[in-house]
Design a protein around this nucleic acid. Structure first.
Lengths: 202, 202
DNA sequence: ACCATAGTTGACTGAATAGTAAAGTAAAGC
DNA sequence: GCTTTACTTTACTATTCAGTCAACTATGGT
């Protein structure tokens, strides 16, 4: 079987860490290797390019950091509306924590990599698109459930979802640029507004 | 007075063109110079870094491409609601044009540069923030006018604006990643939803 | 005419970059 | 203990990159 190795995992962890700090384009293979404690020869043994590593890293990131959290926030044990409110609250809290810890609001790599590379690297675009679709599915389900629970009235579930999700991504990006977590304070109220529920619970 | 030159303008035009195609980090000074037909020595005669050029370029971009368009779309001769609907329609049309012309939806450099560099380059962050604030001011005015015209009812004009603007930026980013202008089709309906006007005009 | 000013040019440095290739090494199977 | 397999390491190449510098050139003012 030959010798075993955790170099692959270390490389994946390294690029995820680095992409939190700086954009995809500003992360070099040498930096990845140094952070992982792996020699460049080994990098090219496992991956044929940064793009290929990133594809695997995005999957791994989803499985390790995103999936479980979203499963909990969007648990079908809660009402559709409550899930969305919990999501808004969680993101607001997270943004505050990031700012407090690092002094700046680092970016989840998924959306930013997508924007940066979507017109340059087809494979990366497709991978990001796949994960964003998966992310949006939580929203769709919540909206659908809210509708069938009679909590909201909407003619077009897909459109409502698109609006909610766009609002979330846009607001998070604005918070990063402003370096101010309080930008995210409005997210919950925005969700309610979009759902046609003006001010309700907290 | 010495000899005159348009090298500065050519460099500014060049970096704007390049940033439409690829991210800030992937644009090199050599590429800028080549596109502008200007030697690197001249680059450093006018600017001390890519960051400094970019700051001037963003201002120039705003003045040359954004300001006039927004003045027209957000003309106070129209009702507040109509301005927002026109904005949504314009952005949808623009996205379709970009896709048809280039096969991909290129990014207006402002927001993308901001996201990419906000945690790396303070000066750039501030410049982008300044221009985004200016951009949002059109929205605030439209919402305020819509409210005082009695067309919408809102307790918090700032929050409504933040929601609208976030939704726009998020949706445009999603359209780029999906490489599908039809993502923007929902923008008008989203604005109405956020304003509490469900389906109305077109 | 000449001089100061404003801008241009080309050649250069050194560091960082992606990518390669060949020899080396650990572990499992026989 | 030998061999195959799976991975590691080192040393290397060839670009590309940011940034510098001194010599050169056009232009207006006097």
């Amino acid at each position: 079987m030959g010798r075993s190795s955790d170099a692959k995992e270390k490389l994946i962890d390294a690029i995820i860490d680095l992409m939190w700090e700086r954009s995809y384009g500003m992360v070099t293979i040498d930096q990845i290797c140094q952070k992982a404690g792996v020699k460049k020869g080994s990098f090219y043994y496992f991956f044929k390019s940064k793009s290929e590593l990133t594809m695997e890293a995005l999957d791994a990131y989803w499985e390790a950091n995103v999936r479980e959290k979203l499963d909990s926030i969007f648990s079908p044990s809660k009402s559709g509306v409550q899930r969305l409110l919990d999501h808004a609250k969680f993101k607001y809290e997270l943004t505050k924590e990031l700012k407090e810890r690092d002094g700046k609001i680092l970016a989840c790599c998924l959306f930013t990599v997508g924007q940066e590379m979507c017109n340059v690297d087809q494979d990366l675009r497709n991978k990001v698109q796949e994960l964003l679709d998966r992310h949006m599915r939580y929203f769709v389900t919540a909206v659908r459930d809210a509708a069938s629970e009679g909590l909201i009235q909407t003619d077009d579930i897909e459109a409502t979802t698109a609006c909610l999700y766009s609002c979330y991504e846009g607001m998070y990006a604005r918070a990063r640029i402003a370096n101010d977590p309080e930008v995210m304070k409005d997210l919950q109220a925005s969700y309610l507004r979009i759902l046609g529920l003006q001010q309700a619970v907290a």
